[in-house]
Write a protein that binds this DNA or RNA. Structure first.
Lengths: 204, 204
DNA sequence: ACATAAAGTGAATATGCCGTCATTTATTGT
DNA sequence: ACAATAAATGACGGCATATTCACTTTATGT
């Protein structure tokens, strides 16, 4: 399909993206509730009215932000988990891929963690549900990969879902270290340690 | 010190605690910003005016809530980590203790995760800083314990801080499973799996 | 019984922000 | 050059909610 967009349409898209980028920065710095539409408008150098031409309301803006970034991320992880490699290689690739994803999306993650975790029926219920499902799906996909490893007697006999959750948690731990102090705790430098820890444990 | 409080003083404290309990419930259900002082007042069966007799403002109420619960929790973990036992036993006790703590404080954790993670300078800056320090201190204390294990050649040669972070992340992963679905993923049932995974890894 | 203090109340105030819409400015086609 | 259409503007209405304070009720001490 030769999606030929007119200049005007391309400009419009660019403006939309600019607004989203500004909003992401502000939200991730200050939190959803502490950023006003006026502030976003001013920061993006548009009028408030214009914001409402692009997005139905504040929630819609937030929703668009999360969904559009989120889908790209899921895609990447899915690709890694669909590779035709042996389990250990895929695990290593998964750990490494997460590094790249986070590096390119710190703000999104900050925001996601700030607005989402725990609170079950916050506003944006539908969206968070969807994001959570994405996450769960990824974990499940990871679990499938691990299950093959278990059946091949490469991995320990255990519920693959828990193994997947464990790997997810392990990587997150290092990611948090890194988020708190990017210079002192570079995630990428620890990919090997994470892999080793997950596979062989902390003993000896 | 025989802190003899008059009946009136005891009542006042009780009222204060009741308000905090109600606020915790509401906050953890709906998120800080989606609960009004009026709602807390009504739910606690006090007038708004009374709330402001107890707490300077909404933020002060929240702050009190987090600090008072938080300090108790830190205390428990510190105790576990100060036991005079071998490393592996302490690790197991730590994992188990976390189960108890979370069981008794689900709301606090929901709330903490919802309001705190990631967003670096949200409101309540001072408080979150303090909470984060508490967490860091606990991790450090855990790291000290692990370091002894490393020196004794019981644990793998690695930065003890990272090992501590890893254990923290691993337990959190299971806690999240449990938070999302308490019946299907009881944390307590998995203490052994967590310990095994941390010590020996996923390989088999 | 009475005075004094403490606890409790809620209408009223002040603030801040979401979202609208009548109007202005820019762009396109003829 | 000139409609006709699309994009952009920002003052303003309306609403939710934090906080105050003048007042009422309850408790305490003499």
């Amino acid at each position: 399909m030769g999606e030929t967009l007119s200049r005007q349409e391309r400009e419009k898209l660019r403006h939309r993206r600019e607004i989203l980028a500004v909003a992401l920065k502000l939200f991730s710095d200050k939190g959803y509730h502490n950023v006003s539409m006026h502030e976003i408008a001013a920061s993006a150098e548009f009028s408030i009215g214009s914001l409402y031409k692009f997005f139905k309301n504040k929630e819609d803006l937030y929703r668009s932000l999360m969904m559009e970034k989120g889908e790209g991320i899921i895609q990447i992880l899915n690709d890694v988990l669909s590779q035709d490699e042996d389990v250990v290689t895929i695990i290593r690739n998964y750990i490494a891929a997460k590094a790249g994803i986070i590096t390119n999306n710190i703000e999104i993650f900050r925001l996601h963690f700030a607005e989402t975790q725990g609170a079950s029926y916050n506003i944006k219920a539908g969206l968070e549900q969807k994001m959570r499902n994405y996450h769960r799906e990824t974990i499940k996909k990871l679990a499938c990969v691990l299950e093959k490893g278990i059946r091949a007697k490469a991995l320990r006999q255990a519920d693959p879902f828990y193994l997947a959750a464990a790997l997810d948690g392990l990587t997150n731990a290092f990611l948090f270290c890194w988020l708190e102090n990017p210079d002192q705790h570079p995630y990428e430098a620890n990919v090997t340690l994470i892999t080793e820890l997950f596979l062989k444990g902390a003993l000896e």
